[in-house]
Write a protein that binds this DNA or RNA. Sequence first.
DNA 1: ATGAGTGCAAATGCTTTGCATCCTG
DNA 2: CAGGATGCAAAGCATTTGCACTCAT
Lengths: 152, 152
Amino acid sequence: MFRSIPNKELSQAGLELRIAAELRAAGLRATAPRRAIVRELLGDTSHPTAQQLFERLEGQLRTLSFATVYNTLRALNDAGHVGRLELGGAARFDPNVEPHHHAICESCGEVRDVPAPKAARAPRLSGFRISRVDHVYRGVCAPCLEAETQTS
Amino acid sequence: MFRSIPNKELSQAGLELRIAAELRAAGLRATAPRRAIVRELLGDTSHPTAQQLFERLEGQLRTLSFATVYNTLRALNDAGHVGRLELGGAARFDPNVEPHHHAICESCGEVRDVPAPKAARAPRLSGFRISRVDHVYRGVCAPCLEAETQTS
DNA sequence: ATGAGTGCAAATGCTTTGCATCCTG
DNA sequence: CAGGATGCAAAGCATTTGCACTCAT
Protein backbone atom coordinates (compact mmCIF):
# COMPACT_ATOMS: atom_id res chain seq x y z
CA MET A 1 0.00 0.00 0.00
CA PHE A 2 1.25 3.47 -0.84
CA ARG A 3 4.01 1.77 -2.66
CA SER A 4 4.84 4.77 -4.73
CA ILE A 5 3.83 7.53 -2.39
CA PRO A 6 6.40 9.65 -0.61
CA ASN A 7 4.43 10.30 2.53
CA LYS A 8 6.81 12.62 4.28
CA GLU A 9 5.26 16.02 4.73
CA LEU A 10 1.99 14.75 3.40
CA SER A 11 -0.72 17.04 4.63
CA GLN A 12 -3.63 15.65 6.55
CA ALA A 13 -5.91 16.44 3.65
CA GLY A 14 -3.48 14.94 1.16
CA LEU A 15 -3.28 11.79 3.20
CA GLU A 16 -7.04 11.47 3.21
CA LEU A 17 -7.14 11.89 -0.54
CA ARG A 18 -4.50 9.27 -0.88
CA ILE A 19 -6.38 6.82 1.30
CA ALA A 20 -9.48 7.24 -0.82
CA ALA A 21 -7.48 6.85 -4.01
CA GLU A 22 -5.87 3.66 -2.74
CA LEU A 23 -9.23 2.17 -1.90
CA ARG A 24 -10.58 2.94 -5.34
CA ALA A 25 -7.43 1.52 -6.90
CA ALA A 26 -8.28 -1.69 -5.08
CA GLY A 27 -11.74 -1.57 -6.62
CA LEU A 28 -13.42 -0.53 -3.40
CA ARG A 29 -15.61 2.42 -2.54
CA ALA A 30 -14.06 4.93 -0.20
CA THR A 31 -16.54 4.69 2.64
CA ALA A 32 -15.98 6.06 6.13
CA PRO A 33 -15.32 2.68 7.78
CA ARG A 34 -12.88 1.66 5.08
CA ARG A 35 -11.02 4.93 5.22
CA ALA A 36 -10.69 4.52 8.97
CA ILE A 37 -9.38 0.97 8.61
CA VAL A 38 -6.79 1.98 6.03
CA ARG A 39 -5.79 5.05 8.06
CA GLU A 40 -5.29 2.93 11.16
CA LEU A 41 -3.33 0.16 9.48
CA LEU A 42 -1.18 2.59 7.55
CA GLY A 43 2.05 3.24 9.35
CA ASP A 44 1.28 0.59 11.96
CA THR A 45 4.36 -1.58 12.13
CA SER A 46 2.94 -3.93 14.77
CA HIS A 47 1.13 -6.27 12.36
CA PRO A 48 -2.22 -5.99 14.15
CA THR A 49 -5.01 -8.54 14.05
CA ALA A 50 -8.49 -7.68 12.80
CA GLN A 51 -9.63 -7.71 16.42
CA GLN A 52 -6.99 -5.16 17.43
CA LEU A 53 -7.86 -2.85 14.56
CA PHE A 54 -11.52 -3.13 15.43
CA GLU A 55 -10.88 -2.18 19.05
CA ARG A 56 -8.84 0.85 18.09
CA LEU A 57 -11.46 2.06 15.64
CA GLU A 58 -14.56 1.38 17.71
CA GLY A 59 -14.43 4.75 19.40
CA GLN A 60 -13.69 6.72 16.27
CA LEU A 61 -16.84 5.83 14.35
CA ARG A 62 -20.44 6.08 15.36
CA THR A 63 -20.86 2.41 14.48
CA LEU A 64 -18.48 -0.19 13.19
CA SER A 65 -19.01 -3.84 12.55
CA PHE A 66 -16.54 -6.60 13.07
CA ALA A 67 -17.62 -8.03 9.74
CA THR A 68 -16.74 -4.80 7.97
CA VAL A 69 -13.22 -4.91 9.33
CA TYR A 70 -12.79 -8.50 8.20
CA ASN A 71 -14.41 -7.96 4.83
CA THR A 72 -12.38 -4.85 4.12
CA LEU A 73 -9.10 -6.44 5.11
CA ARG A 74 -9.87 -9.46 3.00
CA ALA A 75 -10.75 -7.31 -0.02
CA LEU A 76 -7.56 -5.28 0.37
CA ASN A 77 -5.53 -8.45 0.71
CA ASP A 78 -7.18 -9.99 -2.35
CA ALA A 79 -6.33 -6.86 -4.31
CA GLY A 80 -2.74 -7.10 -3.12
CA HIS A 81 -2.86 -3.86 -1.14
CA VAL A 82 -2.21 -5.30 2.30
CA GLY A 83 -0.34 -8.35 3.44
CA ARG A 84 -1.81 -11.10 5.57
CA LEU A 85 0.35 -13.14 7.93
CA GLU A 86 -0.72 -16.61 8.98
CA LEU A 87 1.37 -17.52 11.98
CA GLY A 88 -1.13 -19.54 13.99
CA GLY A 89 -3.97 -17.89 15.89
CA ALA A 90 -5.56 -14.80 14.41
CA ALA A 91 -4.26 -13.52 11.08
CA ARG A 92 -2.11 -10.42 11.23
CA PHE A 93 -2.23 -7.65 8.68
CA ASP A 94 0.63 -5.70 7.19
CA PRO A 95 0.47 -2.37 5.34
CA ASN A 96 3.83 -3.11 3.77
CA VAL A 97 3.47 -5.14 0.59
CA GLU A 98 7.06 -4.75 -0.52
CA PRO A 99 8.97 -8.04 -0.34
CA HIS A 100 10.16 -8.53 3.22
CA HIS A 101 10.14 -11.18 5.91
CA HIS A 102 9.14 -11.55 9.55
CA ALA A 103 10.56 -12.53 12.90
CA ILE A 104 8.16 -13.59 15.63
CA CYS A 105 9.10 -13.73 19.28
CA GLU A 106 7.83 -16.95 20.80
CA SER A 107 7.88 -15.33 24.21
CA CYS A 108 5.95 -12.08 23.73
CA GLY A 109 4.39 -12.74 20.35
CA GLU A 110 5.67 -9.57 18.77
CA VAL A 111 6.27 -9.67 15.02
CA ARG A 112 9.01 -7.59 13.53
CA ASP A 113 9.95 -6.95 9.94
CA VAL A 114 13.06 -8.46 8.45
CA PRO A 115 14.32 -6.83 5.24
CA ALA A 116 14.57 -9.14 2.26
CA PRO A 117 18.14 -9.33 0.94
CA LYS A 118 18.55 -7.24 -2.24
CA ALA A 119 19.63 -10.21 -4.33
CA ALA A 120 16.97 -12.61 -3.16
CA ARG A 121 17.63 -15.68 -5.21
CA ALA A 122 14.79 -18.11 -4.90
CA PRO A 123 15.63 -21.77 -5.33
CA ARG A 124 14.44 -23.28 -8.59
CA LEU A 125 11.65 -25.68 -7.89
CA SER A 126 11.34 -27.80 -11.00
CA GLY A 127 8.16 -26.75 -12.76
CA PHE A 128 6.82 -24.75 -9.83
CA ARG A 129 6.13 -21.10 -10.65
CA ILE A 130 6.87 -19.12 -7.49
CA SER A 131 4.77 -16.03 -6.98
CA ARG A 132 5.62 -15.15 -3.41
CA VAL A 133 8.21 -16.07 -0.79
CA ASP A 134 7.70 -15.75 2.95
CA HIS A 135 10.41 -16.35 5.50
CA VAL A 136 9.41 -16.69 9.12
CA TYR A 137 12.05 -16.54 11.84
CA ARG A 138 10.88 -17.84 15.19
CA GLY A 139 12.86 -17.20 18.33
CA VAL A 140 13.21 -14.75 21.18
CA CYS A 141 13.48 -10.99 20.77
CA ALA A 142 16.06 -8.82 22.52
CA PRO A 143 13.82 -7.52 25.33
CA CYS A 144 12.59 -11.03 26.14
CA LEU A 145 16.14 -12.39 26.06
CA GLU A 146 17.15 -9.80 28.60
CA ALA A 147 14.16 -10.58 30.79
CA GLU A 148 15.13 -14.26 30.69
CA THR A 149 18.68 -13.51 31.80
CA GLN A 150 17.57 -11.45 34.76
CA THR A 151 15.15 -14.09 35.99
CA SER A 152 17.59 -16.98 35.80
CA MET B 1 10.33 -38.09 14.06
CA PHE B 2 12.49 -41.17 13.54
CA ARG B 3 15.33 -38.79 13.11
CA SER B 4 17.98 -41.35 13.84
CA ILE B 5 16.24 -44.45 12.70
CA PRO B 6 17.22 -46.24 9.50
CA ASN B 7 13.83 -47.55 8.56
CA LYS B 8 14.72 -49.46 5.45
CA GLU B 9 13.98 -53.09 5.89
CA LEU B 10 12.32 -52.46 9.18
CA SER B 11 9.99 -55.32 9.96
CA GLN B 12 6.36 -54.66 10.72
CA ALA B 13 6.99 -55.63 14.33
CA GLY B 14 10.10 -53.50 14.48
CA LEU B 15 8.19 -50.54 13.17
CA GLU B 16 5.55 -50.97 15.84
CA LEU B 17 8.22 -51.09 18.51
CA ARG B 18 9.77 -47.98 17.10
CA ILE B 19 6.47 -46.12 17.09
CA ALA B 20 5.94 -46.97 20.74
CA ALA B 21 9.49 -45.94 21.60
CA GLU B 22 9.05 -42.61 19.83
CA LEU B 23 5.88 -41.87 21.72
CA ARG B 24 7.56 -42.60 25.04
CA ALA B 25 10.52 -40.46 24.03
CA ALA B 26 8.03 -37.62 23.63
CA GLY B 27 6.78 -38.31 27.15
CA LEU B 28 3.58 -39.93 25.97
CA ARG B 29 2.08 -43.31 26.68
CA ALA B 30 1.93 -45.67 23.73
CA THR B 31 -1.81 -46.12 23.50
CA ALA B 32 -3.62 -47.65 20.54
CA PRO B 33 -5.01 -44.35 19.18
CA ARG B 34 -1.64 -42.65 19.44
CA ARG B 35 0.17 -45.51 17.77
CA ALA B 36 -2.33 -45.35 14.94
CA ILE B 37 -1.87 -41.60 14.55
CA VAL B 38 1.91 -41.87 14.44
CA ARG B 39 1.74 -44.83 12.07
CA GLU B 40 -0.52 -42.92 9.71
CA LEU B 41 1.48 -39.71 9.71
CA LEU B 42 4.76 -41.50 9.34
CA GLY B 43 5.82 -41.65 5.75
CA ASP B 44 2.95 -39.43 4.68
CA THR B 45 4.49 -36.70 2.57
CA SER B 46 1.20 -34.91 1.91
CA HIS B 47 1.20 -32.79 5.08
CA PRO B 48 -2.28 -33.86 6.16
CA THR B 49 -4.61 -31.90 8.41
CA ALA B 50 -5.92 -33.31 11.69
CA GLN B 51 -9.25 -33.81 9.96
CA GLN B 52 -7.68 -35.86 7.17
CA LEU B 53 -5.79 -38.06 9.61
CA PHE B 54 -8.96 -38.56 11.62
CA GLU B 55 -10.89 -39.67 8.54
CA ARG B 56 -8.24 -42.15 7.53
CA LEU B 57 -8.06 -43.64 11.01
CA GLU B 58 -11.74 -43.75 11.80
CA GLY B 59 -12.21 -47.15 10.24
CA GLN B 60 -9.12 -48.69 11.76
CA LEU B 61 -10.07 -48.27 15.39
CA ARG B 62 -13.18 -49.29 17.22
CA THR B 63 -13.57 -45.71 18.42
CA LEU B 64 -11.53 -42.60 17.86
CA SER B 65 -12.17 -39.07 18.97
CA PHE B 66 -11.37 -35.94 17.10
CA ALA B 67 -10.05 -34.49 20.32
CA THR B 68 -7.57 -37.32 20.68
CA VAL B 69 -6.16 -36.65 17.25
CA TYR B 70 -5.76 -32.96 18.02
CA ASN B 71 -4.38 -33.52 21.48
CA THR B 72 -1.88 -36.11 20.31
CA LEU B 73 -0.66 -34.01 17.41
CA ARG B 74 -0.29 -31.03 19.70
CA ALA B 75 1.67 -33.05 22.25
CA LEU B 76 3.95 -34.44 19.56
CA ASN B 77 4.48 -30.99 18.15
CA ASP B 78 5.21 -29.53 21.59
CA ALA B 79 7.77 -32.27 22.12
CA GLY B 80 9.35 -31.44 18.78
CA HIS B 81 8.51 -34.80 17.21
CA VAL B 82 6.24 -33.55 14.44
CA GLY B 83 6.12 -30.30 12.54
CA ARG B 84 3.09 -28.07 12.30
CA LEU B 85 2.47 -25.84 9.28
CA GLU B 86 0.31 -22.76 9.58
CA LEU B 87 -0.58 -21.72 6.07
CA GLY B 88 -4.09 -20.42 6.59
CA GLY B 89 -7.04 -22.74 7.10
CA ALA B 90 -6.46 -25.91 9.05
CA ALA B 91 -2.97 -26.63 10.36
CA ARG B 92 -1.01 -29.27 8.48
CA PHE B 93 1.24 -31.79 10.15
CA ASP B 94 4.62 -33.00 9.01
CA PRO B 95 6.46 -36.14 10.18
CA ASN B 96 9.73 -34.62 8.96
CA VAL B 97 11.33 -32.44 11.61
CA GLU B 98 14.64 -32.04 9.82
CA PRO B 99 15.16 -28.46 8.61
CA HIS B 100 13.36 -28.05 5.31
CA HIS B 101 10.93 -25.71 3.64
CA HIS B 102 7.61 -25.84 1.81
CA ALA B 103 6.03 -24.88 -1.47
CA ILE B 104 2.26 -24.54 -1.61
CA CYS B 105 0.30 -24.52 -4.83
CA GLU B 106 -2.29 -21.75 -4.73
CA SER B 107 -4.32 -23.61 -7.31
CA CYS B 108 -4.65 -27.13 -5.88
CA GLY B 109 -3.47 -26.51 -2.33
CA GLU B 110 -0.86 -29.22 -2.37
CA VAL B 111 2.17 -28.69 -0.17
CA ARG B 112 5.50 -30.06 -1.24
CA ASP B 113 8.80 -30.19 0.58
CA VAL B 114 11.68 -27.99 -0.43
CA PRO B 115 15.10 -29.08 0.83
CA ALA B 116 16.93 -26.52 2.93
CA PRO B 117 20.27 -25.54 1.40
CA LYS B 118 23.17 -27.24 3.19
CA ALA B 119 24.81 -23.98 4.18
CA ALA B 120 21.71 -22.21 5.37
CA ARG B 121 22.94 -18.86 6.53
CA ALA B 122 20.30 -17.10 8.55
CA PRO B 123 20.43 -13.31 8.57
CA ARG B 124 21.62 -11.78 11.84
CA LEU B 125 18.74 -10.08 13.53
CA SER B 126 20.30 -7.79 16.11
CA GLY B 127 19.57 -9.30 19.50
CA PHE B 128 17.01 -11.77 18.20
CA ARG B 129 17.84 -15.40 18.98
CA ILE B 130 16.54 -17.45 16.07
CA SER B 131 15.37 -20.94 16.92
CA ARG B 132 13.60 -21.92 13.74
CA VAL B 133 13.35 -20.73 10.14
CA ASP B 134 10.44 -21.47 7.83
CA HIS B 135 10.38 -20.56 4.17
CA VAL B 136 7.08 -20.73 2.34
CA TYR B 137 6.98 -20.58 -1.44
CA ARG B 138 3.57 -19.81 -2.86
CA GLY B 139 2.82 -20.32 -6.52
CA VAL B 140 1.54 -22.87 -8.97
CA CYS B 141 2.77 -26.46 -9.20
CA ALA B 142 3.73 -28.19 -12.43
CA PRO B 143 0.48 -30.15 -12.94
CA CYS B 144 -1.63 -27.04 -12.34
CA LEU B 145 0.56 -24.98 -14.69
CA GLU B 146 -0.03 -27.52 -17.41
CA ALA B 147 -3.76 -27.55 -16.77
CA GLU B 148 -3.77 -23.75 -17.06
CA THR B 149 -1.99 -23.86 -20.41
CA GLN B 150 -4.45 -26.31 -21.88
CA THR B 151 -7.46 -24.33 -20.78
CA SER B 152 -6.24 -20.99 -22.12
C1' DA C 1 -3.64 -48.74 41.62
C1' DT C 2 -2.82 -44.39 39.96
C1' DG C 3 -2.76 -41.00 36.95
C1' DA C 4 -2.40 -40.28 31.99
C1' DG C 5 -5.39 -40.85 28.09
C1' DT C 6 -9.95 -41.48 25.87
C1' DG C 7 -14.44 -40.31 23.95
C1' DC C 8 -18.04 -37.36 23.80
C1' DA C 9 -20.06 -32.99 23.82
C1' DA C 10 -19.90 -28.47 24.79
C1' DA C 11 -17.16 -24.34 24.63
C1' DT C 12 -13.98 -21.13 22.49
C1' DG C 13 -11.73 -18.44 18.92
C1' DC C 14 -11.45 -16.75 14.41
C1' DT C 15 -13.76 -15.69 10.15
C1' DT C 16 -17.51 -15.62 6.90
C1' DT C 17 -22.30 -15.07 5.46
C1' DG C 18 -27.42 -13.67 5.08
C1' DC C 19 -30.19 -10.00 4.91
C1' DA C 20 -32.50 -5.57 5.46
C1' DT C 21 -31.00 -0.95 5.27
C1' DC C 22 -27.89 2.83 3.88
C1' DC C 23 -25.02 5.55 0.98
C1' DT C 24 -21.37 6.22 -2.67
C1' DG C 25 -20.38 7.01 -7.40
C1' DC D 1 -30.91 5.56 -8.14
C1' DA D 2 -28.52 1.05 -8.58
C1' DG D 3 -25.46 -1.77 -6.74
C1' DG D 4 -21.97 -1.91 -3.48
C1' DA D 5 -21.23 -1.54 1.58
C1' DT D 6 -22.78 -1.65 6.40
C1' DG D 7 -24.34 -3.55 10.75
C1' DC D 8 -26.06 -7.08 13.21
C1' DA D 9 -26.65 -11.70 14.24
C1' DA D 10 -26.18 -16.22 13.08
C1' DA D 11 -23.60 -19.76 10.87
C1' DG D 12 -19.16 -22.09 9.87
C1' DC D 13 -14.67 -24.12 10.68
C1' DA D 14 -10.72 -25.23 13.51
C1' DT D 15 -9.26 -26.28 17.88
C1' DT D 16 -9.55 -26.80 22.87
C1' DT D 17 -11.59 -28.16 27.22
C1' DG D 18 -14.49 -30.49 31.04
C1' DC D 19 -15.59 -34.70 32.79
C1' DA D 20 -16.52 -39.50 33.84
C1' DC D 21 -14.59 -43.71 32.41
C1' DT D 22 -10.66 -46.69 30.83
C1' DC D 23 -6.17 -48.49 30.43
C1' DA D 24 -0.91 -48.36 30.29
C1' DT D 25 2.69 -48.47 33.24
